[in-house]
Design a protein around this nucleic acid. Sequence first.
DNA 1: GTGTTTGCAAACCGTTTGCATGTCC
DNA 2: GGACATGCAAACGGTTTGCAAACAC
Lengths: 114, 114
Amino acid sequence: MKDVIKNRCDHPTADMIYESCRLLEPNISLGTVYRNLKLLADEGDIITLETSDKKIHYDGDISRHSHFICEKCGKIIDLFKPSKLPDELTELGLTVKGEKCIYYGDCTDCTIKN
Amino acid sequence: MKDVIKNRCDHPTADMIYESCRLLEPNISLGTVYRNLKLLADEGDIITLETSDKKIHYDGDISRHSHFICEKCGKIIDLFKPSKLPDELTELGLTVKGEKCIYYGDCTDCTIKN
DNA sequence: GTGTTTGCAAACCGTTTGCATGTCC
DNA sequence: GGACATGCAAACGGTTTGCAAACAC
């Protein structure tokens, strides 16, 4: 289960993971998938991403990186170059964990199409 | 309805807005609130914030500013000082709208308590 | 009249949970 | 045996939607 997430480089939702798991273990149930995802997320083994499609997306890569989410097509893009966090955060005593930060806007594909 | 959101400086959820509206107009229904919130959001008059509490939070302030969300207590904090967006975004041709960006971590209150 | 907005309740859908069964030591 | 993980189905809760009545022009 953990491997299934770690081995993919996208940001699957719970039911995408469910489908993947069923290929390996056809009898696995959706409840189990949700339970284990929550466990992994609580332990910090995976990252959860809140998007605007009302589904939770999971990321098996817990290294320091942030994300960009296209508000038009929902595409999620990894940003790996470490970025300077705003001074305002430290001034207010706020600590960002693992550079978890989500930028929202339009991706190239959507910009071109308009 | 628009005024109700614009006049508050927090980041209310749909049912918080519903409660506020009912004080002014006791017969208003939840469906109407959701419908109008969606309209306002589509028109760009308000901003939606995706948090981890599975509720949509709305922000009547559409000026350029980003947000910090505490993953422990759910508190949402405005960051008003404009921050330098990562170069990686422009390199990838990604445009962030209104500096919409959410940082996740622990707020001061939660850090102190632990 | 026609077109738009509303209240209401039911539907929707991603997620969570209760419980009986199965598995491992 | 006991502790824990799983399958299954029902429940949960925030959001959406269909529809008839109310409103605006």
